Amino acid sequence: MTARSTTGPAIRVLGLHKSYGKLEVLRGVDFEVQRGSIFALLGSNGAGKTTIVRILATLLKADAGTAGVNGFDVATEAARVRESISLTGQFAAVDEILSGRENLVLVARLRHLDDPGGIADDLLKRFSLREAAARRVSTYSGGMRRRLDIAMSLIGNPPVIFLDEPTTGLDPEARIEVWDVVRSLAGRGTTVLLTTQYLQEAEQLADRIAILHQGRIIADGTLAELKQLLPPAEVEYVEKQPSLEDVFFAVVGGSAEGGGSRESESNEK
């Protein structure tokens, strides 16, 4: 894999514009993502999040502005950018006929890597999928499929990964599983650009958050910095009530290890 530099931002976007006919989707977007961090691009449906990801992944050309990934320009050095990234879309791109291990081995072989089996086994262990390694992916729960999908995207150790709405359609338990995976990516030095419409997801995961609204970044900062945009809160003393999330995990007995409880549910369906 080609890496131009280990210094400077992993992603730099300046004055990005994109229109589809008369519909102006991006109206001058600017932001930077530091290496080894989790950056959340937060916005409602239609805000332009996926358009930004597609431009950064060299799948779409901007009308104006510049963007760089891992030190490479997305317009003039597209091949170098593609060597530096991996993209996980809104729906898990896994082969349901194959087993989890077979999916991983297939991708490793397509990338002409040495020891595809060893790579697959390492990722199965890392993503808590060893017990389900030989099972067809069609039997996996939503959280397991998403974990496998992210594992497949990491084959080849890309320094930058784009996660476009990674928890869309997942239940609360599966969402927590994916959050743990995303945290582990940054912990190993991978730069993560995460798009989401879930406020809690951005709050839980991101080192820095940019709010995209009507094609522009209207706020960009850490969670603490963004909270300072609001007037000081009035202090009131109230009895703390458990959240729905607290109730859910108390009832189900906590997050499943390795997808165990989810496997049973999947087999019953």
Rank of each mutant, 00 (worst) to 15 (best):
S5M: 06
G8T: 09
A10K: 03
V13H: 00
L14G: 00
L14Q: 03
L16E: 01
S19E: 04
Y20G: 02
E24P: 00
V25D: 00
L26M: 00
L26H: 01
R27A: 01
D30P: 00
R35D: 03
I38P: 02
A40T: 15
L42Y: 11
G43M: 10
N45F: 08
G46K: 12
A47V: 13
R54P: 03
L59Y: 08
L60N: 02
K61S: 06
K61I: 01
D63W: 00
V69N: 00
A78D: 10
S84W: 10
S86Q: 10
G89R: 01
F91T: 15
V94C: 12
V94T: 12
V94I: 15
L106R: 11
A108F: 08
R109G: 02
R111D: 06
D114K: 14
G117T: 14
G118K: 14
I119T: 11
I119C: 01
S128D: 15
L129C: 02
R130A: 13
E131M: 07
A132R: 14
A133K: 09
A134T: 15
R136V: 07
S138M: 08
T139H: 10
G142I: 14
R147P: 11
M152H: 04
M152I: 14
M152T: 13
L154A: 06
I155A: 03
I155D: 04
N157F: 00
I161P: 08
D164C: 13
E165H: 03
G169W: 14
A174S: 15
I176H: 06
R183I: 10
R183S: 02
A186N: 07
G187L: 09
R188L: 08
T190H: 07
T191M: 09
T196A: 07
L199A: 05
E201L: 15
A202T: 14
A210R: 08
L229K: 05
L230R: 05
E234Q: 11
E236P: 00
E236K: 06
Q241K: 13
S243I: 11
E245T: 11
V252M: 10
G253D: 10
G254W: 10
E257R: 13
G260V: 15
R262T: 13
E263M: 13
S264Q: 08
S264V: 15
